[in-house]
Structures are given as C-alpha cells and as structure tokens.
Design a protein around this nucleic acid. Structure first.
Length: 563
RNA sequence: CGAGGUGUAGCGCAGCUGGCUAGCGCGCCUGCUUUGGGAGCAGGAUGCCGCGGGUUCAAAUCCUGUCACCUCGACCA
C-alpha cells in the first residue's frame, strides 16, 4: 500500500458521534464511517483488519470440518411465520414488500434456512453428523444502536450449526466447536471469559457465551475466579445467605411515612438499613399482574421469574396499573391485603420484623412477618450482588462487564421438531435431528479488540490482526536517498507477502508518525537521517525502545519479528 | 415508544433577544521557506444555514410541520 496513491484519511480530533473508545478510534483512523444509525461503512483499512478476523474464524471452522455456505439475506416472511418467530421478533425484524406486494424480511438469523438446507442432505443416521456455517449479513432493527460496531442494525455474523443423531453426538460436536472458538478468540488476542448463559425461550439445553472483558460491555459477568465459576447475571443463582431469622415476631403496625416513596427515602426517614425492608414490585407477566417481593437492597431478576413461571413476557406495571392493584400511588405497594399472585424471593423468607408498603399513600407497615400475608411461590428471583456467596459455595462472587463476542448453544431436539427435521435410524424409526448453533460477530470482535488494545490515542492491534504489519516512513520525501531506501524495503517486504504500507506522502515526520500510530501499524521502519550511516530504525509501536538496523538486514529482521 | 438535545463549509463549532456581503479553528488549493513528533509566512477556494410551509418590507435567527442524528429510559435473538 503506497499511501500517496491510496484511499486514506485520519481525523485529528475525537469524533462527537461515537460513544465508545473503539468507535472513536476506528472512525478517526478512517477504518469505519457511520452511514446511518447503527449502520457502518467498512473502509479499506478497516476491511483489512476485519478480513484477518474473518480468516482466523474461517480457518478454525474449516479445521474442524464445518462446511461453509451462504444463505440469502432477503427471505420470504412466510419462512418466519411458519416457525413462529415472525411474531417473537416483532419490530426488530426489517420487513419489506416486493413489486407484487409479497412480504419479505431481511434475515435476523438463519436457523430456519439452515434447517431447510440440512433437511435436503439428512435423511438417514448415515448422513450424520454434519456441520455447516456461513458469514452472512444479519439485519436487526435494534431500538438503540450503541458503541460503534458493538450494537448495530446491520452486521455480519458467522453462524454455524451442528446436526447430530443423539445427545452424545451433540456433546462431541459442541466440544469441537467450543474448542475452535477458544482457538479463534485466542488468536485474535482477546481477553475473554466463558460464562453460562440463558437458554431463553428456545428451551435449549445449554448456552455459553464468550465474553470479551470490557467496561463498556452490556452484559454483567458473575465470577468466582478461584473456583472457575462464571455465569451471566441473568442466570447466576443465589443461595440463601443464612438460616431463617430467630428474632421474636412483633405485631405489625402502621407507620406514617410522608413523602417517602423509594426504599432510600423510607430507610432514611425511619433510620433503618435497606436490608430491613421488603420491596413489593408490581409486574405484568404474560398480561397478568403479579407482586414480586425482594429484600430492600435486592433487585428482581426478570429472566429467573420467567423461567420459574414458564412465561415469556415480563414488564413492570405502569403507574395506572399500580394504582389499580394497590389502591395507592407508586411507592407504597405491599403484600398485605393485595389480591394478585405474590412471588417471594427466598431471601425474604429468612427475614423477620420487616417493613413493607401499606398500599396507602404515605403509609408503611413495620414489624411485618411472614404469617401476616400469603405468598404463592417462594423462590430465587433476585439478581445476585457482588460479594454474595457463589452458588457453588466456594466464596464471594465479583462482577465484570463483558461484550458478547460469541455464543454456543446446545439446542437439542426441540428446534428440529419445530423445523420438521428428522432422520431415520437403523431400525427404521424416525428421530428429530439434534442441533447445536454457534455464533460469532466478527465486527464486534474487531471492536472488542480495539476496546482492549488501545491507549486512548492509538490502536495497538495484536500482531495477527493488525491491518498494517509494517509502515515504512521516509522522513523527508525530498531526500532521494531516503526515498530509494524506503522503496527498496517496501519492495522486499511486499515480495514476501507482508502487509506493508509506504508512507510516501509529502508530509512532515510528526504527521506520519502520528497517523501510523493511530491506525495501529504493528511496527514502523523510519528511513531518516541514519541512512547516511547505512541504517534505518525499527520500532514496534507501543513499545518505547527502537533499534537501529543496517539497511541490508532490515527486511530479514522484520520477517523474524512478524513470524 | 417516552423524555431531552442537536442539525450552519470535508471535520469541530460561533452566529445573543428578528437586520448588513454568514463567520472562526482544523483540513483543502497555490507559492516561498521548513523537514525526526500534528511547521511558518503570503494568497485562495468551498455553504439548498437538514427539508417543507408560514409570519414579515426583510428569516440561519421567530412560528409550524417533517426528517435525520445524539443522550437517557423502555425494549432486545
């Protein structure tokens, strides 16, 4: 790449539009450009880095015998109507009509078509196992695109699917894919953890997520590192913090709490810690109001509630409904005398003489005990807190945030049944094909790598995915000796297939150095005044020291460095 | 979808309560000087002031509609 003849630009200042370090740096480096909300152009230099990630993934997929194919993005809506997912995706699906007014959608994910493709080749147990994958653009109308390439509306996903005849086969396929994912993310230089995750409404058997550790991660990872425990907050179970309270139960009484609605306000008013309170939250679950009880300092885990009740939709009640079911404005709900199902968190069942809302404006009850109201279910429905005991009992958990760069999923047979994907066994009996699905977002990986490898002003690409391996910078392009040496090194390194950039622009050295650092060239050869001594300078960007090399040895030294 | 904000040159922005030929910095072009960490001097180009309608003698500025983008929230395989 000869810069004077290339599409290349950088921005000198931080961009206003980007809310993440990676988004800012990638835009400033001229690698990506926002086209519309959540949709990006991938410019030449960005594409080079992206391709390297794609290549890593493709190599690892091919190595485990998964076969690549490509599915369409434009799909008749009917395909998703039949599987029941047209409804479940709802507004997050882009939909359009053709000239005959037939409804189409832009595919948000491709299980349906993969099942169809699998069905063509799979009839007998002799046809299994099989594994397929693709890199395909997905379209999801996200309500709020964010963080540069991390949450977007149009993105390429590498999605893979395994097809096996039984659970044992699935375990084997899953393990192969899982190991391949480890190798791929390791090669990208990502710091990540694998967490157990929610299997969602699909009813799958196991879901694990590869989470790149990052402060801007949208997922909360619950970890106990010494014992290897790692779970997404959504599925991290809580264990009881102790035995039921042995405190003597007092009769409850009503207490005025003027203008105190939130737990903090009431706690401050009564001068008691939040742990002495029970929060009563009104939720609408599959259309029905429910009262959920958690300790004052705890939060509801909505995913746990759905799983517990085997429901699919949960939403906090609005102010009108709260008033309807509690007879009071928001802030004074309590379990005593309420006429809807009451679900109590396990931790509440250990408490005694606690405080709840009185279902009346500016009133709370104190010294409430379990016998003072009815509850329909007692279960773990809260979010675990940092410092709580890990469910394996090994110690207190800590939190980190993660960017979900990959997901592996044991789907089981449920999905194949829905898709009508069956095979015949040796005894001529039909069985559903056992599926697994596995996804990686390469561009999200790209962003996660930049999030993890930067110093705020420049991208410090890991060697294997740096779009430019060597930047050759002649300091003064009016100096013929420097130009000649730079040109010679450029030719030598190009000949061995390296990604070389020759900065032959008529710019000052400072501009070139800054640009090469911003885009994250892995190393830089400076061809400057030392050419008169027959030497050039080699610097790995991000490291302090530079070394002086004889011109004749430079190319070979760099090949070693990049090997 | 709810609340708030912003649309003015390639980029970042100023343009006050209604008024002159729409400005500044960076970038860009020309020339000279400079050439190892975002150079200096001189000259120059660039605007459907997001879009539509209205008020007015006069609108970037006021009113209205609309679109786009951003922030917070809701939502999210």
């Amino acid at each position: 790449m000869r810069l004077s003849e290339s599409y290349f630009y950088t921005l000198r200042e931080d961009v206003k539009d980007e809310d993440s370090v990676s988004g800012n740096l990638l835009v400033r480096a001229g690698m990506i450009k926002k086209s519309s909300s959540g949709v990006y152009m991938l410019l030449p230099l960005g594409l080079k880095a992206y391709r390297k990630i794609e290549t890593i993934i493709r190599e690892e997929m091919d190595a485990i015998g998964s076969q690549e194919l490509t599915m369409p993005a434009l799909i008749p809506e009917e395909v998703y109507v039949r599987s029941g997912r047209r409804e479940s995706f709802g507004d997050s699906m882009f939909s359009l009509k053709d000239r005959f007014n037939r409804p189409f959608v832009l595919g948000p994910t491709h299980e349906e078509l993969f099942a169809a493709a699998a069905g063509m080749a799979i009839n007998s147990y002799k046809d299994l196992p099989v594994s397929l994958y693709q890199f395909q653009t997905k379209y999801r109308d996200e309500p709020r695109p964010r963080f540069g390439l991390i949450r977007v509306r149009e993105f390429v996903m590498k999605d893979a699917y395994s097809f096996d005849k039984d659970l044992e086969g699935l375990d084997h396929s899953y393990k192969k894919m899982f190991d391949a994912y480890h190798r791929a993310f390791d090669r990208m230089g990502l710091r990540y953890v694998v967490v157990r995750a929610d299997t969602g409404v699909m009813g799958g058997l196991l879901s694990e997520e590869f989470q790149a550790v990052s402060e801007i991660g949208e997922d909360i990872l619950v970890l106990h590192e010494p014992s290897g425990y790692a779970a997404n907050l959504e599925v991290a179970n809580c264990i009881p913090s102790g035995e039921p309270s042995t405190e003597k139960h007092l009769p409850f009484e009503e207490m005025p709490t003027p203008n105190a609605k939130t737990i903090e306000e009431v706690a401050a008013f009564l001068d008691l810690p939040a742990e002495k309170f029970v929060k009563t939250l009104i939720y609408v679950i599959d259309g029905e109001p429910h009262a959920l009880l958690v300790r004052g300092d705890h939060e509801i885990n909505e995913a746990k509630v759905l799983k517990l009740l085997n429901k699919s939709e949960i939403e906090m009640a609005d102010a009108t409904l709260v008033r309807e079911v509690t007879d009071a404005p928001v802030g004074f709900a309590g379990p005593i005398g309420i006429d809807i199902p009451v679900i109590m968190d396990t931790e509440v069942s250990l408490m005694a003489n606690f405080i709840v809302g009185a279902n009346q404006l500016d009133r709370h009850f104190v010294n409430v005990n379990l016998e003072d109201f009815k509850s329909d279910v007692v279960a773990d429905i809260r979010q675990i807190k940092e410092g709580d005991m890990c469910e394996n009992g090994a110690g207190p958990v800590s939190f980190k945030r993660g960017i979900e760069v990959g997901n592996t999923f044991k789907l089981g047979e449920k999905y194949a049944r829905a898709m009508d994907l069956f095979y015949t066994d040796a005894d001529n009996v039909q069985h559903p094909v056992i599926m697994g699905s596995y996804g990686i977002g390469p561009a999200r990986c790209l962003a996660a790598v930049v999030e993890q490898h930067n110093d705020g002003k420049r991208i410090l690409w890991p060697k294997e995915i740096a779009p430019i391996e060597v930047a050759i910078v002649p300091v003064n392009v009016k100096n013929e000796d420097q130009v000649a040496v730079a040109e010679q090194l450029y030719q030598e390194l190009m000949a061995t297939g390296h990604d070389v950039l020759l900065d032959d622009r008529n710019e000052r050295a400072g501009i070139k150095f800054n640009d090469m650092e911003l885009i994250g060239a892995y190393c830089r050869i400076t061809v400057g005044r030392t050419v008169t001594e027959g030497k050039v300078e080699l610097k790995v960007i991000g490291r302090e020291e530079a070394e002086l090399l004889p011109i004749a040895e430079a190319a070979e030294r760099i090949r070693q460095l990049l090997a």
